[in-house]
Nucleic acid binder design. Structure first.
Lengths: 227, 227, 227, 227
DNA sequence: CATGAATGAGCCTTCATTCAT
DNA sequence: TATGAATGAAGGCTCATTCAT
């Protein structure tokens, strides 16, 4: 509950807008689903998917074991739902914040990186879950195609694209590759931060350094004294 | 067996040097240990640590289930041993190749990136295992401190350091942060490559792009025509 | 609903006669009870007692899960009630039809057999339920004494008895044993018919054959031309 | 152990002939499989398939729970295997005894009936299992085609056939129908006997009565002095 | 009376690990 | 050393039953 003061639980923030007019039952139902997702998030972040017992999630969520199966098909489905739910919310928030940025592509990429870091600081569990568990289960990396994550990457990718089209960024680099590399850089740094549970103070600085470095590697330069 | 023609099994290459003088039994023993590690690598890469049965590893290795416990304390130990063994070999190879590089820091960083990609192409299973499983088990990311991985990062980190000391790289960036970011970028791109099982032809090009981008983001520039 | 056009749902036919004067509520209540019994009959016939979920019965009956527990103590009670209810109705019908038979014991036994088969044709689900589930649950064969079934057998048994007393049937056979054997023969043949879902056309013929065979085995014969 | 003094456990009697030359391990393995089957037989007879816990079978058999899954795919497979194993043995014994009968069809049918009853007396659990559980699970009556039981019926059926061909039995009755009816009669009587746990003394008499009755219903009679 | 969401006891099955051979 | 049959603890999931509405 208090955990998500800044980082509002997706369902209750996003879905509440839609289901505001729903009946009491619907609201209670949605709320319980969200409680389970939150319990799962905490548990997965703490012990990892495979080391988390369904009963642990249930007790974290304050529901009976069987209740989980009223909202999710099985443990795998819970994992995937959690991921999709959180990613949806992250993407929505990202989109909103990016739209609000005044300035060009460079400012928006910086904003992207800062938000990425800020989200991790706001909700450590979510950060840990996404950085660590995202790659984890075979479901995720093999069978499950992970469309939400692709959406996330697409945002980055189109920012690079835009910079290239505007002539700000060099065009000898593949924008998708750069997007991926940037994401990887962010993710790895956050993983380190998440696992070490280091002070959140210097995170802002790290975000600045990384975005600076990447952007400086991307921008077109005057041919360095050709003669 | 044939899989590792180019990418020699670490233990038999590295350790064989040490145990050359050992008795036949010892050698057979070492060879069996390596067979188990190879079986585990194949199995972990294919299905992930938690979805791999010890009996599957045994049958991949052509030994009985119980035999595994003669060489490894338990399944976790097998995972860690596998990781350490492979990382040791990778680091040794990396060191060797970097030492052979003619040129300065920039060339060596490029060499580092290229080797990183080359290793992934040479042994897909190893690449998949390291990119995916490295983060996976709680053992790895929490309890287990993962010294070999730290060693690996240290190489990168000192290359950056060196560049900064030599005045080639800008000094406003933390070298450890840059090292981590670079590793993350490589890792993420390789993950994509590994999972998509895409053609290995363009990997060289991707390596070139990434190293170029990063390096260009790092090198000191003439104050861009201040006047 | 349409299923029981010929084979009227016992409760609504039998009990309705008794409860005709009951209040609307009572009638609705009785009707809901019967709907549940019908749902249970269909479900049990289709999947067996142990493979039928209470919720399946509820949805077959068009009521909520909890409603079932307003009419029956538990799932076992539902099974027993269903059995008693149906047997009561069968016995009543049997009694009526036997009373209407003109002719002696032999004709009445033939009538018994034919009705037995006819009932199975009229309501396959009931036939399947009784032939298969009757033996099934431990409740039935062990704890539960199954008085209705005993009543059913008693009818057969007294017919044999009567034939023996009238000097038509040989008296060296135990009438209860013969009754049971006859029932077993009918039951087994019907089981086969029920499970194979064969055409109902030849059932009449099978009934004739069996009753003929049994009766011929029972009737007193003239000492076969001893001289 | 003592239970099967007369009624030898099928596997150890039948299969022992084949596996006599097998290694110790094979024998131990086969013996453990049989122990599990015996445990299952006892448990199923006592509580029915669905009310028997796998762990109960295991403790009846004196093995660990998991051991059962080394010999059987799952609980269903155990049920089917038990049935097939026992039926195979019964059929073999039946065949042997019938072959030894001196006399014609009538004597062999009588022998069939007597053996049927004798087997039930020799092993009550087996009798209860077969009479009660045979119809029970959906697997048995629906999906599972039950070939062994068909074999059993076929023996009876061909005896009737033979009698008809030899002109001893009337030919206006379908031999398969008669076979089924006879089996049903036996089965029902045995069910009663099995469940009531009545004294085994009068069983022989009951067998005699039933076979007499059926046979008398089958044999050709002189046209009963029509004039 | 009716509902159906919630409960939680219980069971089948898996699988890492052991140990007699 | 090597084996692999045996173990049994543990967990995901089901489903009969309850109860607040």
């Amino acid at each position: 509950m208090g955990i998500h003061s800044a980082f509002q639980p997706p369902s209750t923030s996003l879905r509440a807008l839609v289901s505001m007019a729903d009946s009491e039952k619907q609201r209670g139902s949605t709320e319980k689903r969200e409680r389970i997702l939150e319990g799962a998030l905490r548990a997965f972040a703490k012990k990892g998917f495979y080391n988390t017992r369904v009963s642990e999630i249930a007790s974290e969520a304050g529901v009976a074991d069987g209740t989980i199966y009223l909202y999710f098909k099985n443990k795998d489905d819970l994992l995937i739902s959690l991921f999709e739910d959180r990613m949806e919310w992250i993407i929505a928030r990202l989109q909103t914040e990016l739209d609000a940025v005044e300035g060009g592509v460079i400012e928006r990429i910086k904003a992207f990186v800062h938000l990425h870091f800020r989200l991790a600081v706001e909700d450590r569990d979510l950060a840990e879950f996404i950085t660590v568990e995202l790659r984890q289960s075979s479901k995720f990396v093999k069978e499950y195609k992970n469309p939400k994550f692709a959406d996330y990457l697409k945002i980055l990718h189109s920012l690079i694209d835009q910079g290239q089209n505007e002539g700000i960024f060099r065009t000898d680099l593949d924008s998708r590759l750069v997007g991926r590399a940037l994401f990887g850089a962010l993710d790895e740094v956050l993983l380190q931060f998440t696992l070490s549970r280091s002070a959140p103070t210097d995170v802002r600085d790290e975000a600045e350094q990384i975005s600076t470095m990447i952007i400086d590697g991307l921008i077109v330069r005057e041919p360095p004294t050709l003669d």
